[in-house]
Design a protein around this nucleic acid. Structure first.
Lengths: 133, 133
DNA sequence: CATAGAATGAGAATCATTCTCAATAACTCT
DNA sequence: AGAGTTATTGAGAATGATTCTCATTCTATG
């Protein structure tokens, strides 16, 4: 962060700590609820900054709200998401080794086929959560 | 479509044909460009209707624009996406059998762990496209 | 502690998307 | 084919999440 000429301020700490306490991708309004006194414009600005710095990752669910979570290098493990098509809830879920191995092969093949420089992947399992069923 | 008390009108045909001609997930503005004379409000409305009818699928890329494509049952094969983190371009890519098998197992396990009723999955390989490199 | 650059907050501005509503088109029934 | 009923359209207004503006306040460092 400092290496980018940026400060790790109180507002940014609030954002990071609020995200950490959720343990799943949070919307901006959830974030503002979990960080009292934080201005919306500051939250958006810092989410962008933190995202560029690689601290935070933007997640897209089933609805149109942007969701954010701590990047894998800060939150711990590589993981995927389960998305509810009804209410938009997003939860974290594990990444089994067998699946990751199959993904690695696919990525290799896809990179060659499309000329993309592939840096990561996102897997979302979509369905309906317990309360929407 | 008729079973839902809805008409397959000229405007809807335009949307479907424009999407078919793209061969990849298209944004609304791309769609409007490919369907001259179509009102934006009609395009949005019909995208919602067609999506509820299962003809069209909403895809989320790296940027905040909604993208749409024909559903798998109409376009042909099950597939995944490659997303460019710079320009937001989304392309279709294949779904190798080995990967799908690994996914099926993961889905099974995840459903049990989270209580979700999982109906599908989305895989996005993220990276940078040829022109953004 | 002074200074320069970075960050903040309140509100205005943007812009994709959704809504409203009067006019028009598409089906059904006879 | 014509009348009646319901669905659809289009233009613009309204909504709402996100971004921008700018004067003020903080941070780090000499």
């Amino acid at each position: 962060m400092a290496a980018r000429g940026q400060h790790y301020t109180a507002a940014r700490r609030m954002v990071v700590e609020a995200l950490a306490s959720f343990g799943r991708p949070a919307t901006i309004s959830e974030l503002l609820g979990g960080a009292p006194g934080l201005a919306a414009s500051t939250a958006y600005r810092n989410l962008t900054v933190l995202s560029e710095a690689g601290v935070v990752t933007r997640v897209s669910g089933a609805d149109e709200f942007g969701r954010f979570e701590l990047s894998e290098q800060f939150s711990g493990l590589h993981h995927h998401h389960v998305v509810c098509t009804d209410c938009g809830l997003v939860l974290d879920t594990g990444a089994p080794p067998g699946l990751e191995a199959a993904l690695a092969e696919t990525i290799q093949a896809t990179a060659q086929a499309n000329g993309f420089d592939i840096t990561g992947h996102r897997l979302e399992l979509v369905g309906r959560c317990t309360s929407c069923r």
